[in-house]
């Protein structure tokens, strides 16, 4: 066996992956090769230091942070971009309905601008009839009354 192959076997042996029949072969080489024997010792010691190490504890908020992130993505918090359009159309429709219904309610209650104008002109007419105010309207041209008022007013 050459050293290149032996080094491959050392790597496998350290990781517990070398088959039993190959182990004998490897150890037989190590008996005769000081370089490979040194490699075996060095690798074992180097990797032994890796096995026991400090660990960290997850933050107590770990689960709640994940839930919050999932919530953001699924739409309970942040609304994904395309959904803004979906909400815009019903919103505009609702506003239109409110405006139309407010006009309709006003018309039904008789308190719109036009009903107010109509009722105003009819009340003027009523007042004129009650107090006979039509008599104060312009006198016929060439009549005595007209002449008298012209003399008095100078118009």
């Amino acid at each position: 066996m050459n050293c290149k192959r032996a080094k491959r076997m050392i790597s496998l042996y350290i990781d517990g992956e070398l088959k039993k029949d190959r182990e004998k072969e490897m150890f037989a080489h190590l008996e005769t090769c000081s370089d490979c024997k040194e490699e075996m010792k060095f690798m074992s010691e180097m990797l032994k230091n890796l096995s026991a190490e400090e660990t960290i504890e997850p933050s107590p908020y770990f689960f709640s942070q994940i839930k919050a992130k999932i919530g953001e993505v699924s739409g309970t918090g942040w609304i994904p971009f395309p959904f803004h359009f979906n909400l815009a159309f019903p919103g505009a429709g609702l506003l239109f309905l409110i405006i139309i219904s407010s006009f309709a309610t006003g018309a039904l209650l008789g308190n719109t601008y036009w009903t107010q104008v109509n009722s105003e002109s009819s009340s003027i007419e009523e007042t004129k009839t009650t107090f006979n105010l039509h008599t104060f309207e312009a006198l016929p041209e060439g009549s005595l009354g007209n002449l008298h008022s012209e003399l008095l007013g100078g118009a």
């Binding site: 080094k7 491959r8 790597s11 496998l12 350290i14 990781d15 992956e17 490699e39 060095f42 690798m43 180097m46 990797l47």
Partner: peptide, 15 residues
């Protein structure tokens, strides 16, 4: 196998 072998050889060279 190859990945781990190369990794160990690299560690050996550094250390």
């Amino acid at each position: 196998e190859s990945l781990l072998f190369k990794a160990k050889q690299k560690l050996r060279t550094i250390l």
